[in-house]
Design a protein around this nucleic acid. Structure first.
Lengths: 356, 356
DNA sequence: CGCCGATACTGTACCGGTACAGAGAGGGCT
DNA sequence: AGCCCTCTCTGTACCGGTACAGTATCGGCG
């Protein structure tokens, strides 16, 4: 049996297809009575409403926005911080009725979601800017908003003050008298492990900025940190390598970590070696996610407002979509930088007087 | 300037629109040389590929599947178990190139994502089957798969053995000699708090099944459990009310919990009252998520394989999409029931001899 | 009475692709 | 030479809607 379309209903009721369309999409265009008849007929025929695809083509709008996640998808869902970010976006978007379509970086096969899925705009969240998915999105000439990425001239962006936050964290440790400081950071691509010369690394935006921030403070103080680097979701590798570093004779008295989760890995290493936090080892995290306050001792960390970031990103995207609709590339686009703030808790303390 | 379409390129190269279409979508239909010329011209004109919306209309397929989440969106992203589930779906779907569109239950305004967003099929995950979003989806006559929901005759479903898992948990406590047992469960809608007659509640599928399972074991033993009920994300309320129950003179010696997270709330209550786990209070969770093993003492819980559930759901959905494409409603549809398993760790022990 | 504007509905021309059935050219085989 | 097949490319008819500019009807008013 053929599909039920506007025409089916139109024939049934004896009106034009256009009138049926209006019954669904522009109720003010026809009399209440006729509209009722049409809706009833539609109901009887099992018509669920105008086909979204056809409507999207005709109207030029799909009702969905993409979120591009290059990072491990699993991580995006599993990580508390990423989860809160996505949830905030969803909440901010809910009133607009926009659905969220998750764009994975590389649709295996020859389907590339970033190129082939219909969307009204997209959020590029913490992606490798050189990845194919990102360039496909750019080529589509869609409203885009970059989040946690190097700002691009012509697209709005939302970032947090990674660098100054990291600097504050490092300065905090210096102020406490630490001079042997290690760093545990993240990096999706190799090299991983204990890195000799971190300055040569090609980093994602956040890793890069935080590294710069740490060094802003450490370099003037003449501190040359040991450097551990692993993908975000491999806490276990962090644990292993930071344990190695903490076993050295000149072991560091403090660790700067890329995230709270990373800090958990370092913490585990300390536990294994019987090092007390913060007496023997100070640890500073980043994000101030749920784990930070739950840790014992509670984690000193750099707070970012992930919910605000999510809401700002969603708002920027809807604004950008509006801007496109209303005439396109006007003047300069907004670049937001959200504040970060050092939260001193219990995992950081004065450098031990007598190095072990 | 007008948009670049297939026609623009066709005119430029001097071929028919159809040939340009083939250059992108069916490379075997034209000579390699011509294809190169077309692709080059497209590149020059800044054409990113066939418009997904138009393609979707013409092909009758969108390249995206929906996931309907009635439950608090925030919870879906924040909860570890839900996160792992979504990630598993994403991983299973990746090779197919299908993107995931998150359908929120109620697009405020008059946009209803479940009705208005173009998708090829959808997963209905732990939703209230009477919600408008679900009935919109059903009316659209799309491939649907129900997950963690009462199976429906004509749609495939994936469930876990909630009932037998819960029964095993309850039996475990009975075997340890517990007779004063309390339950901390979940419920999105009121009533919340300490419930007198749990049998009258209208529950979501999982809550319902687990309650039945617990009672399967408890009733024959003549145990009438105290009953606490709160939304999943309100651990704090769980903590408060279970604390109240644990303060009673005839306080329970064991708690059966809807999830591991719920168990955390109960655990906090126990801590606050100075009750030792498991000496004074046994606690059994559900899910065996990441927290279970991390808890100290490690949590006795009912294990479900969330990754397997996600993969099975995704596979069932792609199969259902295929079935629709190849001729529609054939015979009976599959209903999967994944096993659960009691994992005994350290949070459950013999009932205390001398009740306090 | 005749003109005007509002209200209710309709006709046509798209939106930007794809499917499918040709049509023409060239090559191999008998 | 004649036939058929393959390889390329094209023409037409949709996919299922919406926008916009009509057209008809009718009541109100000068």
């Amino acid at each position: 049996m053929p599909r039920v379309t506007l025409q089916t209903i139109a024939d049934r009721v004896g009106v034009s297809r256009m009138t049926v369309s209006n019954a669904f999409s522009r109720p003010d265009q026809l009399s209440r009575a006729l509209r009722e008849r049409i809706l009833t007929a539609a109901q009887e025929l099992g018509y669920a409403g105008p086909d979204p695809t056809a409507r999207a083509l005709a109207r030029g709008t799909t009702g969905a926005v993409g979120v591009l996640l290059t990072d491990s998808l699993r991580h995006a869902f599993t990580d508390q911080v990423a989860g809160v970010f996505l949830a905030a976006i969803a909440e901010e978007l809910a009133p607009t009725g926009l659905a969220i379509t998750l764009l994975t970086s590389w649709g295996t096969g020859d389907v590339v979601p970033a190129r082939d899925v219909a969307i009204d705009g997209a959020l590029v969240y913490s992606c490798d800017p050189t990845s194919p998915a990102v360039s496909w999105l750019r080529r589509r000439n869609l409203p885009l908003v970059y989040v946690d990425q190097d700002p691009v001239e012509d697209a709005p962006s939302v970032n947090i003050a990674d660098r100054s936050g990291a600097r504050a964290a490092a300065q905090h440790l210096l102020d406490l008298g630490h001079r042997r400081i290690a760093i545990a950071t993240s990096g999706a691509n190799p090299p991983h492990g204990i890195i000799a010369d971190p300055a040569t690394l090609v980093e994602a935006h956040a890793s890069d900025q935080r590294r710069l921030g740490w060094f802003d403070a450490l370099e003037p103080a003449g501190v040359k940190p040991a450097f551990v680097r692993h993908p975000l979701d491999q806490i276990d590798s962090v644990r292993r390598d930071s344990r190695a570093i903490l076993s050295r004779p000149d072991r560091p008295t403090a660790f700067l970590c890329f995230s709270d989760t990373t800090a958990v890995g370092v913490r585990q290493a300390a536990d294994e070696l019987g090092l007390r936090v913060p007496e023997d080892l100070s640890i500073v995290g980043f994000d101030d996610g749920p784990v930070a306050a739950q840790m014992r001792p509670a984690l000193t960390t750099v707070r970012q407002d992930v919910v605000a970031k999510g809401r700002a990103a969603a708002a920027a995207l809807t604004a950008e979509i509006r801007r496109f609709r209303e005439g396109g590339p006007g003047g300069p686009v907004p670049h937001l930088l959200l504040a970060t703030e050092l939260v001193v808790r219990e995992s950081s303390g004065p450098a031990p007087r007598t190095p072990v």
